[in-house]
């Protein structure tokens, strides 16, 4: 998947956020010497290619009352993990869901699902729902609550020369 120079400039111009004005795409275009319609056409293409997943708001979980988050981790039968992972990812309270390699013997878990809730009890209830969904294909699980953010910087596209 490659981005041309104009795509990259659009990514750079929008990765901190869109201008909050009536015509945000025209404003981005102004800053790049493009028409608003060109910016929209490029964004449509980037979405079709999956480079952009959606355009919208990133909510602040904490401010919206979701005070607890736990990384739930599961040891799921390899033959079933992809089918079950898709079902776990579709749960409304799971915000991220990935298959990752195990690190045996200390780490038997191959499915990671981030769960948010108003408190730890609610997160544990949601974890129990995942356990029911996984059923006997799951041989073990754990949950890792975060106690502190040690660093948080947004992922940023590196500037390329030229």
């Amino acid at each position: 998947m490659t981005l041309d120079a104009i795509d990259r400039r659009i990514v750079e111009a929008t990765q901190a956020g869109l201008p909050l004005c009536a015509t945000p795409f025209a404003e981005i275009g102004d800053s790049l010497g493009l028409e608003g319609a060109d910016v929209i056409a490029r964004l449509v293409k980037l979405k079709e290619r999956g480079v952009i997943r959606r355009i919208g708001a990133a909510p602040n979980h904490y401010r919206l009352g979701m005070l607890a988050n736990g990384m739930s981790v599961w040891d799921v039968d390899d033959a079933q993990v992809d089918a079950l992972g898709a079902q776990v990812g579709a749960l409304t309270f799971v915000t991220h869901c990935y298959r990752r390699p195990r690190a045996l013997p200390d780490w038997p878990y191959n499915l990671f699902a981030m769960v948010h809730g108003s408190d730890r009890e609610e997160v544990q209830e949601k974890r129990a729902q995942i356990a029911v969904l996984l059923g006997p294909a799951c041989r073990g699980s754990d949950i890792l609550f975060s106690s502190r953010i040690l660093k948080k910087t947004g992922l940023r596209l590196r500037r390329k020369e030229g």
Partner: peptide
């Protein structure tokens, strides 16, 4: 909502891997 921090960012969500890296 953005200024008061209920929304941390408003804009495109990029697939990080698709941007390279």
């Amino acid at each position: 909502l953005r200024e008061d921090g209920f929304i941390t960012r408003f804009g495109p969500f990029f697939d990080a891997a698709a941007l390279g890296g």
